[in-house]
Design a protein around this nucleic acid. Structure first.
Length: 487
RNA sequence: GCGUCACUAGCUCAACUGGUAGAGCAAUUGACUCUUAAUCAAUAGGUUCGGGGUUCGAGUCCCCGGUGACGCACCA
């Protein structure tokens, strides 16, 4: 304790000093509980019921600022986002309480009892009959006017960001509302919410490198899931005909504006549906999320009016570039990419080159919500072959503001075809593609018992929240984004 | 992983081509019984991210390291 004091700066010393003085006055600065009669928001909403009435109300919250005037002081108390002014008058609360209140610091958690009135300047205010400290702060808050701007501190100490920046708190409230809306939508349509393993002995369902961990008792390697697709499909086999899960997935990859190593997806599967049905459902979900149809994201207006544009993978490339990239081999694709001035850098595989051409020439310009449909078979090992077009699968990706926000297929339910696709993946893995799939015999086994025709969708929650809150980095919609260790 | 830029008081920011590190808020003391970015007067607060170097002299220039932001790569 004594040693710690050496590190304290002047402000912190002062706050510890105030704590001691309060204890000397017989006031315990860390109370066990307090029962506010109202939230500040309730008082603001129902002020007519209370102003100038003989009704004693109480609130609790954090002291955000203080204006002392001799024998009177004004304190702003904030409980969630809403703030209310408290009028503390020596004549009303008494000498002892007033002296104690003077020892409170900005940042302290206080409980206030009193009656509501309007000041001469028209501000809703509690005339305190009693004010008590509930929890003493020992470090000063960020400055009141400019707030907290240092992005590193905002991410490392999110609590300070939430205290100082209301916009930040609103983003996270909105995030929860979005998740609740989607959950309600799916539940109302008869989808069963389930939980599937995060620790998986074989990972799959997406192209990504996993985080690896170890179970001591069984002495086995486990992977943090990169997707939950293969488990949800097992449940479809089991006769849970509509199923969904909000899942934290983990991918051992780089971090940028749209990628955090752990992120949230909702995946949902519906038996007897195909990808056309699933496109309609995705549109319906956004009907609910964007009731006004239009939003502004990064200064661009985005119109969610249905139906969204369908953009055929190969046709759109041909329209944009004049090149038909179907049925080309890897070398031919490389040549086309070169002629289109696309820098392929490290990209070598067939799928990666195709995807790069698509991203550069088509996807970037898809601002209004669009479904990219009918992807190449080679890059879609879990999607079933298109019913009419050769070489492509029944798959779509919703693209909004140029950003991929999901992925969906008519699910491959032919176990023999699935085994072949896995074999191809295993070959690519052997050729050094670290993101290729592992063989999953247990999953194929489940398909052998018969999976109904099924449509499945995965939606990236973080990116959807970014869009709907106009945030331009995933870190601003994830409460505790991954950062390096300090020091 | 690579490149560019940033890091100064608790917070938000200054400090010209190298020349005594400053302001506002927050804090302390005093005045003030309807203030609200309260006001007035005074006081205190710094390992300029860390380490090394160049120099008479480094917040400023050079090197190494740390953390972050942005871009690139990875994430088909």
């Amino acid at each position: 304790m004594e040693q710690n004091n050496i590190d304290l700066n002047v402000l912190e010393k002062q706050m510890v000093e105030n704590l001691k003085k309060l204890r000397e006055m017989g006031i315990e600065p860390y109370k066990y509980s307090f029962s506010p009669t109202h939230s500040v928001r309730e008082l603001i909403e129902k002020k007519e019921e209370f102003v100038d009435k003989e009704i004693e109300i109480s609130i609790a919250g954090r002291m955000m600022s203080e204006r002392a005037h001799g024998k009177v002081m004004f304190i702003d108390v904030k409980d969630e986002i809403e703030k209310i002014q408290v009028y503390v008058k020596k004549d009303i609360v008494g000498e002892q309480k007033y002296l104690a209140a003077k020892l409170f610091d900005i940042g302290d958690i206080v409980g206030v009892k009193g009656k509501l009135f309007m000041t001469h300047s028209g501000e809703l205010t509690i005339a305190a009959t009693d004010i008590d400290i509930l929890s003493k702060a020992l470090k000063p808050l960020p400055e009141k006017f400019h707030g907290l701007k240092d992005v590193e501190v905002r991410y490392r100490k999110r609590y300070l960001d939430l205290i100082a920046n209301d916009e930040s708190k609103l983003v996270f409230r909105r995030r929860t509302e979005i998740i609740s809306s989607i959950r309600r939508f799916l539940s109302e349509r008869g989808y069963l919410e389930v939980e599937t393993p995060i620790l998986q002995p074989i990972y799959g369902g997406a192209f990504a490198q996993p985080f690896v961990t170890h179970h001591n008792t069984h002495d086995m390697e486990l992977y943090l899931r990169i997707a939950n697709e293969l488990y949800l499909k097992r449940l479809i086999v089991g006769g849970i005909n509509r199923v969904f899960e909000f899942a934290k997935d983990f991918r051992n990859e780089g971090i940028d504006r749209t990628h955090n190593p752990e992120f949230t997806q909702v995946e949902f599967y519906q038996a007897y549906a195909d990808y056309n049905d699933m496109m309609n459902i995705v549109e319906e979900i956004f009907d609910i999320l964007v009731p006004g149809k239009k939003i502004v994201y990064a200064d661009k207006e985005i119109d969610f009016t249905r139906p969204w544009k369908r953009v055929d993978f190969f046709k759109s490339i041909e329209e944009k570039t004049g090149f038909d990239v179907r049925n080309k081999n890897t070398d031919e694709l490389k040549d086309i990419a070169k002629r289109l001035n696309i820098d392929l850098d490290g990209k070598k595989t067939y799928g990666k080159i195709l995807d790069e051409i698509f991203s550069e020439k088509v996807q970037k310009d898809l601002i209004n919500p669009s479904f990219v449909i009918n992807h190449p078979l080679e890059i879609s090992p879990l999607a079933r072959k298109h019913r009419e077009i050769d070489g492509v699968v029944e798959r779509f990706e919703p693209i909004i503001a140029g950003m991929e926000v999901g992925n969906s297929f008519s699910e491959l339910n032919d176990p023999l075809d699935q085994r072949e696709r896995f074999m191809k993946q295993v070959e690519e893995r052997q050729q050094g593609d670290a993101e290729a799939f592992q063989m999953d015999e247990d999953f194929i086994d489940s398909l052998m018992y018969g999976m109904p025709p099924t449509g499945g969708v995965g939606l990236g929650i973080d990116r959807i929240v970014m869009l709907l809150t106009n945030q331009h980095t995933i870190r601003d919609v994830v409460l505790f984004p991954l950062l390096k260790k300090e020091k």
